[in-house]
C-alpha cells in the first residue's frame, strides 16, 4: 500500500527532473525529505515494479522513427501467452498487450510498432505474422498526434497539500 509520502514522492517525480549534478537532492528538497530517504524509496519502488524505469523517453520522430502503427491481431485464446512472449522479443515492438475484444471489433491482441517508414512497419508486421503463424491482423497507421503526455499521478499531493 502507498502511504501519503509515497504519493507525494510519485506526484513530484512526475514533474521536471532537474538536469543538474545532484538532482535527487533537489527533488528531496521539494518533497521535504532527505536525499537518502528519497533514494531508498525510489529503490524500493523499482524493486516492486511500481517504478518502471528511470531515464529518458525520446521523441521518436526526431530521432528518425517517423512511422508508427498500432497493429491489431486476432489470436486464438489458447495461444495468447506464447504469441505475447514471441512478439515481445522483437525490437520494433514497443508495446504488446492482450485486450478484451468487442462484438464489432474482434481484435484481441495489440502491438505498437515503430519504424523509419510505413513500408518497414508493413514488413515487420508480415514478419511477426509469419513467426506467430497468424493471418488476421490490421495495421492502423497514425496520421496525427492529438495528445501525447505523461500521466500526473496523485496530482492533489504534488503541491504539498496533505490530502486525506
Amino acid at each position: 500500500m502507498l502511504d501519503n509520502l509515497d504519493k507525494k514522492i510519485i506526484a513530484v517525480m512526475q514533474g521536471d527532473f532537474p538536469l543538474v549534478a545532484e538532482p535527487y537532492k533537489e527533488l528531496a528538497g521539494q518533497i521535504g525529505i532527505s536525499e537518502n530517504e528519497l533514494l531508498e524509496r525510489l529503490t524500493k519502488y523499482r524493486k516492486s515494479g511500481q517504478l518502471r524505469k528511470m531515464g529518458a523517453v525520446l521523441r521518436h520522430r526526431e530521432v528518425g522513427y517517423a512511422a508508427n502503427a498500432l497493429c491489431a491481431w486476432i489470436v486464438p485464446e489458447q495461444h495468447l501467452a506464447k504469441v505475447g512472449e514471441l512478439m515481445s522479443g522483437f525490437k520494433a515492438v514497443t508495446h504488446c498487450y492482450a485486450r478484451i475484444p468487442q462484438p464489432e471489433w474482434p481484435y484481441n491482441f495489440y502491438t505498437m510498432l515503430h519504424a523509419h517508414t510505413r513500408d518497414e512497419c508493413r514488413c515487420i508486421a508480415a514478419e511477426l505474422a509469419q513467426a506467430a503463424g497468424l493471418q488476421k491482423y490490421t495495421l492502423l497507421f497514425s496520421t496525427r498526434e492529438w495528445k501525447k503526455t505523461s500521466m500526473s499521478y496523485f496530482p492533489e499531493y504534488a503541491k504539498g497539500e496533505e490530502a486525506t
Binding site: I10, M13, Q14, G15, D16, F17, L19, L42, Y45, S48, G49, Q50, L51, R52, K53, M54, G55, A56, V57, L58, R59, E62, V63, K148, S150, M151, Y153
Partner: peptide
C-alpha cells in the same frame, strides 16, 4: 529530442 526525462511509473502497480 527528449520528450520527458525522469521517473516512469507502472499505472496498474
Amino acid at each position: 529530442y527528449i520528450r520527458r526525462f525522469g521517473a516512469f511509473f507502472d499505472s496498474s502497480c
